[in-house]
């Protein structure tokens, strides 16, 4: 019996080591760059990192990323100058584009259509409007040279706060424990494909048995109907507050949004107060081919090409 148990442990250890090697050899586990908060209190990636972003069990999506000196994923360095035509694309993971090869980003696609314009992609997963406005404000010395700024915004996700502060929960991903976990590609791979979800759920369930919490109030349909407009009003207030705090420049800034996902309240406000915006739904909705990836909702190559084309057309109109 003891021999049997010993052998199980022995085999498990050996198999784990071999699997770790296999996962590394086949590049199944993705690389995760380190993040930090710079002296301007801007959260971003640590400069000069390279790696591979991998999605799916069998490496179904595989792309290279390159974090430049500014701490953003781009093939170029960001050196704004008063003598060049430059456009900043500010946004979350959609602009960051880890799901695509960094040499084939939206920015690169725009540059191919507008060869005299340099596109700086300030994309970082999880950035909301407060993060974006703080970034532009913190790097105002850079941004003052940039001719135009396009800000990608999703109403339901990016306006949940009206005041900027550093997101502690995101930085917790840089804890020594998480760093240690990340050092095992096998563990990272298992986590990404969902193998670790059942044990996590099991532990949560066990903990909930041990520490029973107060029953959650379930809101009925009529309550939910009331909550939704209230949320929209709150988000709009957050938008107004951030616009006012950071002196949003309507002449130099343009919002990039999908009107299909944006409530009429916000769209009406933008129109009434003359906030320029680009509606990506105009190109995504009529598309016959799929415009998003199969594993998540990020834009695929076709989606990015359509959006890049739309932005390029817009920039041609407004840039000198």
């Amino acid at each position: 019996m003891k021999k049997f148990l010993k052998k199980i442990v022995y085999y498990l250890v050996l198999i784990t080591i071999i699997l770790e090697i296999l996962v590394r050899l086949c590049y199944l586990g993705k690389d995760t760059p380190s993040r930090w908060v710079d002296s301007y209190q801007v959260e971003k990636w640590k400069p000069n990192q390279q790696g591979m972003s991998v999605t799916g069990n069998r490496r179904q999506n595989f792309s290279k990323y390159n974090i430049n000196k500014a701490g953003f994923n781009s093939y170029r360095e960001f050196i704004p100058s008063p003598h060049a035509t430059e456009v900043a694309l500010v946004g979350d993971s959609y602009i960051q584009g880890f799901h695509q090869d960094y040499t084939n980003s939206i920015g690169k696609k725009i540059e191919q259509q507008l060869p005299t314009v340099a596109i700086y992609e300030y994309g970082y997963a999880g950035y909301d409007f407060a993060d974006q406005m703080h970034l532009i404000d913190a790097y105002k010395n850079d941004f003052k040279h940039i001719d135009h700024v396009i800000i990608y915004i999703k109403f339901s996700e990016d306006l949940q706060r009206g005041i900027y502060n550093v997101r502690i929960e995101r930085l917790a991903l840089e804890s020594p424990k998480n760093k240690l976990l990340r050092s095992s590609k096998l563990l990272l791979y298992a986590k990404n494909i969902g193998v670790l979800d059942p044990p996590k759920r099991w532990i949560r369930r066990m903990l909930s048995y041990l520490t029973p919490s107060a029953p959650q109030k379930t809101s009925n349909t009529s309550e939910q109907k009331k909550i939704k407009p209230q949320k929209e009003i709150n988000y709009l207030e957050n938008f107004k507050q951030l616009v006012s705090t950071y002196h949003y420049n309507k002449q130099r800034y343009t919002l990039l949004l999908d009107t299909a996902d944006t409530p009429a309240l916000f769209l009406t406000y933008l129109k009434e107060h003359q906030f320029p915006y680009i509606d990506i739904n105009e190109v995504l909705a009529p598309a016959i081919q799929p415009t998003t990836l199969i594993y998540d909702q990020h834009w695929n190559d076709h989606g990015r090409t359509l959006i890049a084309g739309q932005i390029a057309t817009y920039l041609q109109k407004i840039l000198p």
């Binding site: 085999y11 198999i15 699997l19 296999l22 069990n57 069998r58 298992a190 494909i193 969902g194 979800d197």
Partner: peptide, 17 residues
């Protein structure tokens, strides 16, 4: 041992969440 490892590797490759 190789067979065990490959079978477990196969389990991971085709695990559907």
């Amino acid at each position: 041992f190789i067979a065990y490892t490959l079978v477990i590797f196969g389990l991971l490759l085709f695990y559907e969440d």
